[in-house]
Design a protein around this nucleic acid. Sequence first.
DNA 1: GTAATTGTTCTAGC
DNA 2: CGCTAGAACAATTA
Length: 257
Amino acid sequence: MAELPDLTVFAQILTRKYKGEELDKVEVTVEKKLNVPVADLKSALKGQKLLNVIREGKTLQLHFSSDQIVGLHLMLRGELVELNNGKTPRFQVLAFHFKNGSGFSLIDLQKQATPTLQPKPAVAPDALNIDKSVFSALLAKKRTLIKTLLMDQKVIRGIGNSYSDEILYHAGVSPFSIPKAIPSKDVAKIYNSIRTVLEKAIHDIAGANGDKLTGELKDFMNIHSPQLKTTAKGEIIKTAKIGGRTTYYTDAQELFV
DNA sequence: GTAATTGTTCTAGC
DNA sequence: CGCTAGAACAATTA
């Protein structure tokens, strides 16, 4: 669920709510995914202030004073919940408690969510920053399906199963297309659709969520949804598995092989 | 009771 | 050897 637009909105809300707050304590409930010993995390963050929260690819980065950074990857089912009644949320992985009594928790029923102290900077370009010529060059040499390519975090960061379908539907290109075979006109369409689709989703989600951190992030999928049988234009929505992931598409999307 | 879900990592294969 | 495809992982809900 958590892809680039959701995470962007989470980062905005966390910054709004907790910017400037001083940490009281960090509570680690599930430590197996943490990249350092719990004691190291606690001592690194002791008494630090949260300066801001940004999105990096599919992760959030909490920037604290003294140059301390904590990366949070929500993986498949991670969620953020606001703490207010002192109760530990179910499935908690770790929690940030501030001195003013506020705080938030990272939860994940699968315990896959990954906190990282001082994450390494990633090299792959972000989906919202990638240069058009870099994008074209990338597609020109890849043989894997276009959908798989868009989801490859080592190539472009931020796009997952849901939004890859949305982007390709918007661009009118079949997810089964081979990147090398896609004409430059259509490569340009995909490139533009990445920005259009993601920015619209950020806008829609931010508007619907307001200051609410958690709960059902209302989604605005036009095609990637088991509930939808046809698109707004009336096209039949088909499904298939690509890389084990359910893919939603229509015959209106042009196939290049 | 079984299938589906989701992203990353590892492994096998071409 | 480089690239690509597919399985495994975890824990729950439908």
